[in-house]
Simulated scan of single mutants.
Amino acid sequence: MPLPFLTADRAFDANAEDSDDIALPFDDHDQWRRPYRPGPWRVGAAAVLLLLASFVMLAAMIIAFAGAMSGAGLCLALGLVVIALALRLLRAGVWVSRHGLRRVGFFATTTLPWSQVTGVRTVQQPVRWLGLPRTVQGQALLLGRKGQGEPLALLTDHNADFLSRVEAFERAADTVEAWGAEYRTETP
């Protein structure tokens, strides 16, 4: 079974070895891609949710064999909701294509065409640690938007994908900046 999210870093590394500039690592630029792998915190949280879902589904089966179909249906529905939450958690992140930039959050998804993007840059600033209210000094990849005064933080080096993975953050930030530099100039 192909796992396309595992090929992001390999494609970037292969192109980086061939040239000194930042190359866009994918052949098909029309398809939405996440230019980095999900981090261990995100994958670990999703694995725990899937483990919980397996126990809930097992409970649904036991309840169904006991004859209480309404309780089994409730447990089955709860298990499916937990599976959907785990999949949504794994899908969260920044996705890029020729058409624009997509920021997939846990509850909402925002898509901006490259024509609405004024700039993508990495800055040093206080960032949230694993999305919690606590802030620490770190790096953030900021997205400037037309008509919006405040830039949007796309990635930080202390989120669930890049905590303790500074090189991966820098690679992902460089890749998103390269996509922005490539397609912001092409749009009228």
Rank of each mutant, 00 (worst) to 15 (best):
F5C: 02
F5K: 05
T7F: 13
T7E: 13
D9W: 14
D9C: 08
R10G: 09
R10L: 10
A11M: 08
A11L: 13
A11K: 09
D13Y: 13
N15F: 15
D20P: 09
D20A: 15
I22A: 14
A23R: 15
L24R: 04
D27G: 15
W32P: 02
W32I: 00
W32D: 02
R33T: 01
R33M: 09
R34P: 04
R34T: 00
R34G: 10
P35D: 05
P38M: 11
P40L: 09
W41K: 05
R42L: 11
V43E: 05
A46M: 12
S54M: 15
V56P: 09
M57K: 14
L58E: 07
A59W: 13
A60H: 12
I62G: 10
I63R: 15
A66I: 01
A66L: 09
M69Q: 09
M69D: 03
S70I: 05
A72F: 04
L74N: 07
L74H: 04
A77E: 00
G79L: 03
I83Q: 06
A84I: 01
L85K: 03
L85Q: 06
L89T: 05
A92C: 14
V94S: 02
V96N: 06
S97D: 02
R98I: 00
R98M: 02
G100R: 01
R103C: 12
G105C: 05
G105E: 04
F107S: 12
A108K: 15
T109I: 09
T111S: 13
T111V: 06
L112R: 10
L112C: 09
P113M: 07
P113G: 14
W114R: 02
S115Y: 11
T118K: 14
G119A: 10
Q124D: 14
V127D: 01
W129V: 09
L130E: 02
L130Y: 07
L130P: 13
P133I: 03
R134H: 13
R134Y: 10
V136G: 08
G138P: 07
L141V: 00
K146F: 07
K146G: 11
G149Y: 04
P151C: 07
P151A: 08
D157W: 03
N159A: 06
A160Y: 12
D161W: 11
D161Q: 03
F162A: 01
E167K: 12
A168Y: 10
R171E: 02
A172G: 07
A173K: 00
D174N: 12
T175N: 06
A178E: 02
W179Y: 15
W179T: 00
W179M: 02
W179S: 02
E182P: 05
Y183N: 00
Y183W: 06
Y183Q: 01
Y183H: 08
